[in-house]
Simulated scan of single mutants.
Amino acid sequence: MRDRFKPPSNLCYEIADFLSNQIIKGELKSDEKIREAELAKQLGVSRGPIREALQILERKRLVERKPRRGTRVVRMSSSSVDWLYDIIVELYGLVARGAAEHRTERDVAEMRRALSRIKGAATRGNLSDYYEALFHFALIGEKAAKNPLLEQMLADLEPLTRRMQFDSIKRHAEDLQKSATFFEQTLQHIENGNPEMACKTIQEYTQEERKIALKGKRLATTGTIGGRNNK
């Protein structure tokens, strides 16, 4: 008799989300070891869901599991950050361009509401709210671009992108209002149906973000991302 397929429990996804958030926000540091037994005791669960959650995080390139070293948070080097920005600068440009070409009135209205959240969080200096509003704005833009393949590519990169961008936002927390103007300008170009300027504006913002992220990593000389060695 064939074994029955056993899908992962919802609990393992909840644990994965919990750990993912800790990694993204730096509460679990690069190269920090994650001990299954201690984590199971802390969360009051068995080790099975913990193991499944770590497998999910490994696929998302947030942790790595190696023989005799156990499970550790992936360390992102300067090279890793640079490679990732090479990709997302282009992808975000395509999102802005596509949104300007294919936006609907509903898309624009939703992006305006998201922009209002960004500006409000920037005014209050609320880093966490700003970060969440920023990603909500991006998700609406991705849907407005009407490109399912582009949307999927960004979804696959989202855990790494969130981790990197949260670190970058922390490093320029005093400039949140200045950063918010990039999104306001991008939305204006999208609403006006100007794909070239929408693309240019969001890419300028992303390049500035890259500089901040790399400045924070300038002392890093080695590391891994998704199993690749950086030197």
Rank of each mutant, 00 (worst) to 15 (best):
Ala109Phe: 03
Asn229Gln: 12
His189Glu: 10
Leu39Ile: 12
Arg113Asn: 06
Pro49Gly: 08
Asn194Gly: 02
Thr181Cys: 00
Arg61Gly: 00
Glu110His: 08
Lys33Asp: 02
His102Gly: 01
Tyr92Cys: 02
Val95Glu: 07
Asn10Arg: 14
Glu191His: 07
Ser9Arg: 07
Gly223Ala: 07
Phe182Met: 03
Leu127Asn: 07
Lys66Glu: 12
Val73Thr: 12
Gln177Glu: 14
Gln165Tyr: 08
Arg35Gly: 00
Glu14Val: 11
Gly227His: 09
Lys29His: 11
Glu58Gln: 15
Ala138Asn: 07
Glu208Asp: 10
Met197Ala: 11
Ala155Ile: 11
Ser128Asn: 09
Leu94Glu: 12
Arg162Glu: 06
Tyr85Glu: 04
Asp82Thr: 13
Gly226Glu: 06
Thr71Ala: 04
Gln177Asn: 09
Lys6Tyr: 03
Gly98Glu: 08
Leu28Ser: 04
Glu191Ser: 14
Thr206Asn: 05
Lys217Thr: 13
Gly141Cys: 08
Leu84Gly: 00
Asn194Trp: 03
Asp86Gly: 11
Asn194Asp: 15
Met111Leu: 10
Gly193His: 10
Met1Arg: 03
Arg97Asp: 05
Gly70Cys: 05
Arg75Ile: 05
Glu105Pro: 00
Met111Arg: 07
Asn21Ile: 09
Gly141Thr: 15
Cys199Gln: 15
Asp129Cys: 02
Leu62Asp: 04
Tyr131Arg: 08
Glu209Asp: 11
Leu134Cys: 00
Lys41His: 08
Leu214Thr: 13
Lys200Val: 09
Ala100Gln: 06
Lys178Glu: 09
Pro7Asn: 10
Gln203Cys: 03
Lys146Leu: 02
Ala198Phe: 02
Ser80Ala: 15
Leu219Cys: 00
Gln165His: 12
Met1Thr: 06
Tyr130Val: 09
Leu91Asp: 04
Glu36Val: 15
Asp17Asn: 14
Arg68Pro: 00
Glu14Asn: 09
Asn192Gln: 14
Ala122Pro: 06
Arg72Tyr: 02
Gly120Tyr: 05
Lys143Val: 12
Arg163Val: 04
Pro8Arg: 15
Val63Glu: 02
Gln22Val: 04
Ile202Tyr: 05
Gly70Phe: 03
Lys200Tyr: 09
Ala100Ser: 10
Ser179Leu: 03
Ile15Gly: 01
Arg68Thr: 14
Lys231Asn: 06
Arg68Gln: 11
Gly48Cys: 00
Lys146Trp: 00
Ala138Gly: 05
Arg61His: 14
Ala213Cys: 04
Lys41Trp: 02
Gln188Cys: 01
Glu151Asp: 09
Pro67Phe: 13
Arg171Ala: 05
Ile190Tyr: 03
Lys41Phe: 02
Arg162Pro: 00
Asp17Gly: 05
Ala180Ser: 14
Ala144Thr: 12
Leu94Phe: 01
Ala180Arg: 07
Glu158Gln: 14
Glu174Leu: 04
Glu101Arg: 15
